[in-house]
Simulated assay, not measured.
Amino acid sequence: MDTDEAAHRLQLLLKEFTIPARRPGDGRTGTRAHPPVPLNLAVIDHITASVVEVAEHARAAAPDAGPLPAAPAGIYDWWRQSTPDLDEGAVQARETVIYRQGLEHAIAAGDHKVIRKHPCPACGTWGLFWRAAAQRAVCVNQDCTDTKGMARTWELKQLAHEHIAARQRTLKANAT
């Protein structure tokens, strides 16, 4: 997943997943005192939290950054444009947050396959899957266990950090 895909996934969430899901049934419901909420509030909260996190990081690095973009999906380009002179470590941190948020957007949209595209940081196998209850990626390699003998689990920020670091190593190796 390209880091610009985070903006696409955020836009997809905004357009497609803010409409409340219909509940299965025969169409008959009890009388309501109030109509249902016209938006999926969990998705709206997710989008808002993502924008706020990016804005806080951007303003910490560039307090004079301009106003936030009107469209939430423009937040990542805005962050990059507001912080063009970051050192290498800060660029890696910025791109890691953007990539992690892209993974979060995909999972919020129900696309758990994005996790399978990452190798396990411990053993390097391609056996990760998303465990929704734990909100973590889990390695299915039977030899990849923690000190208690349990399958290793990874937070999205760890997967994002590994992905961005590997990409930067590749870019440096190819630049010579």
Score class of each variant (00 low, 15 high):
W154I: 03
L171P: 00
D85N: 10
H112M: 09
R131P: 01
A134I: 09
D143P: 07
L68K: 02
E95L: 11
D87V: 03
A165L: 13
T153W: 03
D87I: 01
D64E: 13
G74A: 01
P72G: 02
T176R: 12
T147Q: 15
A108R: 15
L128M: 07
W126M: 14
C139I: 02
G66D: 11
L128K: 04
C144A: 08
H105P: 06
Q142T: 14
D85Q: 06
I98G: 00
A166F: 05
G127Q: 12
Y76L: 12
C144N: 09
T176P: 08
W126P: 08
P69E: 00
H161M: 14
C144W: 04
H163T: 15
V140E: 07
Q168C: 06
G110N: 10
R131C: 10
Q92H: 09
I98H: 01
V91C: 12
Q135C: 06
T153L: 04
H161V: 14
A73M: 05
A134W: 07
C120M: 03
P119S: 04
T153G: 10
Y76F: 14
T170M: 12
V97Q: 12
I75M: 01
R152Y: 13
L103Q: 02
D87M: 04
Q158M: 12
A132C: 04
L171W: 01
W79M: 05
T145A: 09
A106W: 06
P121C: 09
P119V: 05
I98Y: 00
R116I: 11
K117I: 14
G74I: 00
F129D: 09
S82Q: 01
D77T: 13
G66S: 07
T170R: 15
D64K: 14
H105R: 04
G102W: 03
M150Y: 14
A160G: 03
F129Q: 13
D85I: 00
G149E: 07
R136T: 09
A122S: 13
T170L: 15
V91W: 13
L171Q: 11
A109R: 12
H161F: 15
T83A: 08
D64I: 06
I115P: 05
I75N: 03
A106C: 14
R167M: 12
W126G: 08
G89F: 06
A65T: 03
K113H: 15
G124K: 01
T170H: 14
E104I: 00
A175G: 10
A93D: 14
L159I: 04
A137R: 02
L171F: 00
S82G: 01
P119E: 00
I98T: 09
